[in-house]
C-alpha cells in the first residue's frame, strides 16, 4: 500500500508570517496537532507542532500573561527542516520512520510542493481496516509450522467449503519460535465444519486463542 492511498489531501496550512494566535485558532477549530507552513508557491518551509506551540505559551496557571506572545509570528517556532515522505513511499516503511523517530506527522512532498499529510492516526486506521471486520465474518487462528506450502494446505480446506476469505495475517508465535499463527477472517457464521476438516488435516486450530485457557 502506498502513502498516496492513505494520506489526507485536505490540508490546513499557514505562512511563516502568520501569528501564534492564528495557529492556535486553526488547530483548535479543526482538532489538529500539526500545521505545515508553506510559502506563496506552496513549497513546504516548515512544520508547526502543537507541542512547540504549547511550549511557547505561558502556563494557564499563571495569571499574568505577556500579551504580545500571541502576536508573534511562526517563523521562530516552526521546525524548519522536517522529515517528509513521498506519495509513492510504502506505508509499511513509513510506519517505521514514525516509530524510529517518535514523531506524529509526516508532510507528503512531491516536486517541492506540499501534496498531503499523514499522521499516526491514519496509520492506525489502515491497521484497523486490515485487521478488523468490515464485513460479517468469523476469525479462526491456526498454529502452523513455518515452512513452504503451509498456507496453501490451509486455504485448500476453505476452498472445499466455498468459504470466502476476507483477510489473512501471519503472526510470530510468542510461545513456539519455530511456529507461526495464521489468523484468517472468513465469511461464515458456522466455522465448525471448516475447523473439523482443518483438525482432520492435522492443523492446530486455536479458536478462540486466550493464553491460559484451552477449551477444545
Amino acid at each position: 500500500m502506498l502513502i498516496e492511498e492513505i494520506m489526507k489531501t485536505k490540508i490546513f496550512t499557514l505562512k511563516s508570517d502568520n501569528t501564534i494566535k492564528d495557529a492556535l485558532r486553526i488547530m483548535r477549530a479543526n482538532k489538529i496537532r500539526h500545521l505545515p507552513i508553506v510559502n506563496d508557491e506552496n513549497n513546504l518551509v516548515g512544520l508547526l507542532t502543537e507541542r512547540d506551540l504549547k511550549n511557547a505559551l505561558p502556563s494557564p496557571l499563571v495569571k499574568k500573561t505577556v500579551e504580545n506572545i500571541y502576536e508573534q509570528n511562526l517563523e521562530k517556532l516552526m521546525i524548519t527542516n522536517p522529515i517528509v515522505c513521498h506519495p509513492l513511499d510504502f506505508v509499511e516503511e513509513t510506519a517505521l520512520i514514525f516509530y524510529e523517530n517518535r514523531i506524529g506527522c509526516l508532510p507528503v512532498v512531491s516536486g517541492g510542493k506540499l501534496v498531503g499529510i499523514v499522521t499516526t492516526n491514519d496509520l492506525l486506521y489502515t491497521y484497523i481496516e486490515i485487521t478488523g471486520a468490515t464485513r460479517p465474518s468469523s476469525q479462526i487462528e491456526i498454529r502452523v509450522n513455518d515452512q513452504a506450502g503451509t498456507l496453501h494446505d490451509v486455504t485448500k480446506v476453505f476452498t472445499k467449503h466455498h468459504a470466502s476469505i476476507l483477510s489473512v495475517l501471519v503472526y510470530p508465535d510468542s510461545q513456539h519460535e519455530e511456529k507461526r499463527i495464521l489468523s484468517i477472517r472468513v465469511k461464515v457464521m458456522n466455522p465448525l465444519p471448516i475447523i473439523d476438516d482443518l483438525r482432520k488435516e492435522g492443523f492446530d486450530v486455536l479458536w478462540p486463542n486466550m493464553p491460559g485457557i484451552n477449551r477444545l
Partner: peptide, 9 residues
C-alpha cells in the same frame, strides 16, 4: 466479542 465470533462487529 467479535474477536473470533461472527459477525465481528
Amino acid at each position: 466479542t467479535g474477536r473470533y465470533l461472527f459477525p465481528g462487529t
